[in-house]
Nucleic acid binder design. Structure first.
Length: 436
RNA sequence: GGAGAGGUGGCUGAGUGGUCGAUAGCGCCGGUUUGCUAAACCGGUAAGGGGGCCUAAACCUCCUUCACGGGUUCGAAUCCCGUCCUCUCCGCCA
């Protein structure tokens, strides 16, 4: 959410920001309603104050008749206050509905425009591979090596679900181990989070459960939903808290499953593991002071690069344009891995594997997470940031497709070998075995 | 799932209808004393929002908040209903 006062004081700037982000919000209507709300709020406060004053004098009334007279006066004021309050509540509800639609403000350096305005700001260390044979896509590779069963996934849970098998299981676990260990070394506190969260936590992070276009699976007869990312649970972790600024930034790393309905996404780039309803993700999350968030955003992006450099996956980093930022992000960097099996006729293409966002105070305002400097008066809203360390399903695509060999085997990235127990995935599970 | 107990300021803990935003202790901040430290003593110490105030600080003032939401009442930490959470015991389960 944006701050109401900020919107009111900067209506033109907010309007322009909405335009750049492709969000149609009626700023003028918001301003009108908010102006009326403020007047009504003053009225309610005034009536309430007067009613309180009268109530305080009743205990000290001299006699019964004066007591009764004051009670009547008090009753009259309370009723007037209640009536005004009702109008205020109605205005408030209407305003919040509009307020929720405002996207966050945008970083001044974020490129303005739609997808085509994306700016490449960095390349990974590993070069895009050149194959002297026709590379396969990850579905072919995985099926020939007996690593993946999409048909069984569909039988059990429908399209978009899958079974991982054999070394793919080891790879998934290895990616988790590798990423978590790496982040622990960088001062991140590892956490395994709930895979479900309350709907108001979802909404605080910026997800809309039960909407028509929702990405979220809801649990029937409850106010719980399956999380789409551990960003939701990690962000919700400190709801309502006031943090000591001396302890910031807080660096967390969450392990969770992620569930996404992918409503309306059928038909485009849905082959294999690229767009699935469930996957495992190692997520970074940070709470910072307002001054720290830009620096922390660079840190998160840097860590994502280190991870994929270590895995020798070729990638580029994109500074996401305003039109693609979504609601909560102030700025977003995406890592796009080279995926040889993607694109027209298997020519290869870039596919998003991680993403890191600085959400400034957009999430903390709704979640009410503040920070306070010792000895200073008042609190400020913290800034929240998130970044993908490893989204396992997409990392698997990049690893399988980039590391494939002419004989159809897959070379295991060096940092994963201790966990997978072999250097190469061949035709048969256990073919190369673990060394004794 | 069943039974019981409970949720009050940074913490402990009193408070069962009227200047109670709340006794007391601990902690913390300031001061006195002291060669230094400690102790002792004195004073201060919840948060959020609005206004005085055109900008910052200080100060003053009002409102809201005793888990959350509703109800009763002129008035609720206190009475009633619902929800959530915590703890104990029993059952069940990985």
């Amino acid at each position: 959410m944006l701050d109401r006062k900020f919107i009111l004081d900067n209506a033109a700037i907010v309007q322009e920001n909405c335009r750049r982000r492709g969000a149609s919000v009626d700023v003028q209507k918001f301003v009108d309603l908010e102006t009326r709300r403020r007047a009504k709020d003053t009225e309610v406060q005034d009536l309430n104050r007067r009613a309180n004053e009268v109530s305080k004098t009743i205990g000290q009334a001299k006699d019964e008749s004066e007591r009764e007279a004051r009670k009547a006066e008090g009753r009259r004021l309370r009723e007037a206050k209640e009536a005004a309050q009702k109008e205020l509540d109605a205005l408030q509800a209407e305003i919040v509905e509009i307020q929720k639609l405002f996207p966050n403000m945008s970083h001044p350096q974020a490129p303005v425009g739609g997808e085509s305005a994306a700016v490449e700001i960095r390349r990974g260390r590993a070069p895009v591979p050149k194959f002297d044979f026709k590379p396969k896509d990850h579905v072919e590779l995985a099926q020939s090596l007996d690593l993946l069963d999409l048909e069984a996934g569909a039988r059990v849970a429908g399209h978009g679900f899958y079974f991982l098998k054999n070394e793919a299981v080891l790879l998934e676990l290895a990616l988790q181990q590798f990423a978590v260990n790496f982040l622990i070394g960088r001062g991140y506190t590892p956490m395994i989070t709930p895979d479900l969260a309350r709907n108001d936590v979802l909404a605080g992070i910026g997800f809309l459960p039960r909407g028509p276009e929702t990405q979220i699976y809801s649990i029937e007869n409850s106010d719980l939903s399956l999380i789409a990312t551990a960003e939701i649970t990690l962000g919700g972790l400190l709801t309502g808290q006031v943090l000591d600024e001396g302890q910031l930034p807080l660096r967390l790393c969450g392990v969770s499953h992620c569930y996404r309905t992918e409503a309306g996404a059928h038909g485009r780039a849905t082959r294999g593991l690229f767009r699935v309803h469930q996957f495992t993700k190692i997520e970074m999350f940070a709470f910072t002071t307002p001054e720290q968030s830009d620096g922390m955003h660079d840190e998160l992006c840097g860590l994502e690069c280190e991870i994929f450099d270590a895995l020798a996956v070729p990638y580029r980093v994109i500074d996401t344009p305003t039109g693609d930022l979504g609601g909560p992000a102030y700025r977003k960097f995406d890592l796009e891995a080279w995926m040889p099996g993607r694109g027209e006729g298997g020519a290869g293409d870039w596919g998003e594997i991680t993403s890191t966002s600085n959400c400034t105070d957009y999430q903390s305002r709704r979640l009410d997470i503040r920070c306070k400097k010792k000895g200073e008066k008042g609190t400020r809203l913290v800034h929240t940031l998130n970044g993908t360390a490893v989204a396992v399903s997409r990392a698997l695509i990049a690893i399988l497709e980039n590391n494939q060999q002419a004989d159809g085997s897959i070379v295991v990235p060096e940092p994963l070998r201790p966990f997978v127990g072999k250097e190469r995935i061949g035709k048969k599970f256990g073919e190369l075995g673990r060394s004794p």
